[in-house]
Design a binder for these strands. Structure first.
Length: 598
RNA sequence: UGCCCGAUGGUGUAACGGUAGCACAGCAGACUCUGAAUCUGCUUGUCAUGGUUCAAAUCCAUGUCGGGCAGCCA
């Protein structure tokens, strides 16, 4: 184990997560299989942005490498050029680095740039070496040679069946398929045709290379699966070098073998592919110990989607502003929303790794961020729905700068000064003309404490001709300032406030779940589009913040006291004109109390 | 009605033949210059039926329910 190289933090002192895959790997290490070495990989297809489900896989694969002193390769699983783009490659690199930085980055295995056959994309610099991720497309030459070996061994053949006929011949799950009429071509003819496929002599779909296994197998994936197809499409990484591309099943196991992967971990839907994974590797004359595939259940989260295809649709149809919309379950969306990598990693630890297809509660993700942000974020006062309070017995023009604690969870965070004056804003919800049961904030005649300031009493209301509340008039107890003579008086509620003349105006964006039903994806649900939450985004443009927030830098996180955790938007916020995203609310006992009486 | 996989409180998980535990959520209380945090306590569970065993969540059988597989997608 080489945990000492993995930085510090709770993850380094706690026991690593235990689960069935962990046990398998641990037993292999113990028994000296693969010479005690552990090599995993995270193999996304660059056809979309990474989401929280990928984070689970990243944590699993990198966590194993980290614990056993192995390596985890970042590999683009890019065998289908029609759907893949460099933009996605770039986002994947960024998201993986962001997620594992300070935790498992020493175990991230990249390769030296320039050794690939394609158009290199630079990942990052480490020392003097320029590194880039692995690409399955870098192995197209080797994979092609392996295909030739299979053909020469009589284990693969060129099939001229049309896509429709291929499907027909395959049969159905409960009915065996039939042999292709081209199944018994000679090795020479197969080699010749395969070479001519590669040379570009045939149009898309004209022929395929197929494994010769068993058309009557109960496992569909063993019914002579297609290994290579013709696609006259330019590839984002290999350019125009190829017009035949290997299928996932053929490329993946071989990529694993080529990279020296020991444990190839994927999701449950590939379980039925495992016999094919093994068949391909065992059919070739491969000298080294073969990698093995293990499957776990992918993550499903309530009230959101995890399918890249559907997330892409939300982006394309402009339902959201982009892949990094803070409502998206993407890593970039969560990052923009204000989630920390630590909180996402902790979440992945909390959910565990099993073969059970469950539905995880959003509350667990929220718990993970709150827990992390509570420890780390500076507090500040912000009023989202302001109502003015004029303090009758406070001198006009006077300003006091009161001391406020930056983070009660972290004494080292220090203090700051917040200005107080005759006119302040408080939260509209902190006042009720006719107090509800158990409401102990401000109402006519009642006292509340103003955080870090005085005890305030509401004496009257100012309304317009239609009876709308315009402002409150109040008096304060001059001796009750924090630290003052009567400061110790027991007052049930403390509320936050912002001095009106000093307030910074800001836009604040409140986010809610994207969908109104727990499983927007459900087959019988009428389509996820019909379950979009119209209130998933609420933009508040008239918020008032304490002046220290005016200079917030993009990405900076705060707890707005009594409201929640907020993060200055990385795209739209500028010092002087801040825009904040709400990461998560604080738990709110008052909201629960209200639900009881309703 | 083919094959593969799975099933433990509301949710996610642990228990590897020997006291069903943890976390989230929920509820109640303590504390509180954040109705937050923190602390204390509580409710709720082994899919069913048989079998093996001194002993079964765990092993076996059958059934039920759920998921996956019929792309020249991954």
């Amino acid at each position: 184990m080489s945990q000492e190289t993995a930085g510090s933090g709770p993850e380094n002192t706690q026991a690593p997560p235990r689960h069935f895959i962990h046990e398998i790997v641990a037993s292999h290490v113990q028994s000296g299989r693969y010479a005690g070495r552990v090599g995993t990989r995270f193999p996304p297809e660059p056809n979309g942005y990474l989401h929280i489900g990928h984070a689970k896989s990243i944590c699993l694969n990198f966590g194993l490498a980290r614990e056993f002193g192995g390596t985890c390769n970042l590999r683009m699983d890019d065998t289908n050029p029609a759907r893949e783009e460099v933009e996605y490659v770039e986002s994947i690199i960024q998201d993986v680095n962001w997620l594992i930085q300070g935790w498992a980055d020493p175990f991230l295995n990249l390769k030296q740039a320039g050794t690939s056959s394609g158009i290199g994309l630079l990942a990052k610099d480490k020392g003097n070496r320029t590194l880039e991720p692995f690409y399955a497309s870098d192995y197209f030459g080797q994979i092609y040679d392996f295909a030739l070996e299979l053909i020469r061994k009589g284990k693969a053949y060129i099939c001229d069946l049309s896509p429709e006929d291929t499907e027909r011949y395959r049969g159905t799950p409960d009915r065996p398929g039939q042999d292709s009429p081209f199944r018994d071509r000679s090795v020479e003819e197969n080699v010749d045709l395969f070479q001519r496929m590669k040379a570009g002599e045939f149009v898309d779909g004209a022929r395929t290379l197929r494994a010769k296994i068993d058309m009557s197998s109960p496992n569909i994936w063993l019914r002579d699966p297609v290994l290579y197809r013709i696609r006259h499409v330019e590839h984002h990484h290999t350019g125009k070098a190829w017009c035949v591309y290997p299928m996932y099943d053929f490329a993946h196991c071989l990529s694993d073998y080529i990279e020296g992967i020991t444990h190839s971990i994927c999701t449950l839907e590939f379980e039925v592919h495992r016999p094919l994974y093994d068949w391909i590797l065992e059919s070739l004359s491969l000298p080294r110990e073969l990698p093995k595939q293990y499957e776990f259940a992918r993550l499903s989260l309530g009230y959101t989607l995890m399918s890249k295809r559907k997330l892409l649709q939300l982006v394309q149809e402009k339902t959201v502003i982009g892949w990094d919309d803070p409502r998206m379950p993407t890593i970039s969306g969560l990052r923009r929303r204000g989630y920390t990598p630590e909180s996402i990693r902790h979440f992945c630890e909390l959910i565990g790794v099993t073969k059970y297809n469950g539905l995880t509660d959003m509350s667990l993700l929220e718990f993970a961020v709150r827990e992390d942000l509570n420890k780390k974020s500076h507090r500040a006062m912000a009023v989202l729905h302001p109502i003015k309070v004029i303090i009758d017995n406070y001198p006009e023009g006077e300003v006091e700068w009161l001391e406020a604690v930056n983070n009660p969870e972290d004494p080292a965070a220090g203090h700051r000064k917040v200005p107080f004056s005759k006119e302040i804003y408080i939260e509209r919800d902190d006042f009720m003309e006719l107090p509800a049961k158990k409401f102990y904030r401000l109402f006519p005649g009642n006292e509340v404490r103003l955080r870090y300031a005085y005890i305030l009493k509401c004496v009257s209301m100012e309304k317009d001709s239609e009876g709308n509340l315009l402002a409150l008039r109040a008096t304060l107890d001059p001796d009750s300032k924090s630290g003052g003579a009567t400061a110790g008086r027991k007052i049930k509620a403390t509320i936050h406030w912002v001095s009106a003349p000093h307030a910074t105006r800001a836009e604040v964006r409140l986010y809610d779940r994207l969908f109104t039903v727990e499983e927007p994806d459900a087959a019988d649900g009428g389509g996820y589009a019909s379950h979009l939450n119209p209130k998933s985004l609420e933009v508040l443009s008239q918020c008032v913040l304490e002046p220290s927030l005016a200079s917030a830098s993009p990405g900076q996180r705060f707890q707005f006291e009594r409201l929640g955790y907020f993060c200055a938007d990385t795209k739209d916020s500028t010092p002087g004109a801040p825009v904040f995203n709400r990461t998560a609310t604080l738990r709110d006992g008052w909201v629960k109390e209200q639900h009881k009486t309703v």
